[in-house]
Write a protein that binds this DNA or RNA. Sequence first.
DNA 1: GGCGTGACCCCAT
DNA 2: TATGGGGCCACGC
Length: 109
Amino acid sequence: MNNSQSFKQKCYALLKFIPEGKVTTYNEIARALHSKAWRAVGSAMASNKQLFTVPCHRVVRSDGAVGQYALGSGKKIALLLSEGVEISNGKINNLEKFMHRFSSRQVAS
DNA sequence: GGCGTGACCCCAT
DNA sequence: TATGGGGCCACGC
């Protein structure tokens, strides 16, 4: 089993499933892993050095705010706008519209 | 082996 | 509608 992978390692795997123009929330990722470790998810992103391998910029807060980013929140917004995500005042419009939901198969138990 | 930190979330005021 | 406080988990030292 891939249980040998750390929690954050699983988070990176899930991020790769997010298509362009779509976003997800930290809470959604934690829920996909059947855990409440939203905190750990954020820590995992902060520890993520593979910005080009893991689209961590597609992860936003449940409130709709883009949240933080290794290169700065401003850079994160620019990337999302470039992918077609509508953002105003640093917050996503119609979060549910761009919200991406994970499937059971994508969830590594 | 234990404690503090953090790219958070939710509820109450 | 905006702001504050408390709580949760995994990881590093």
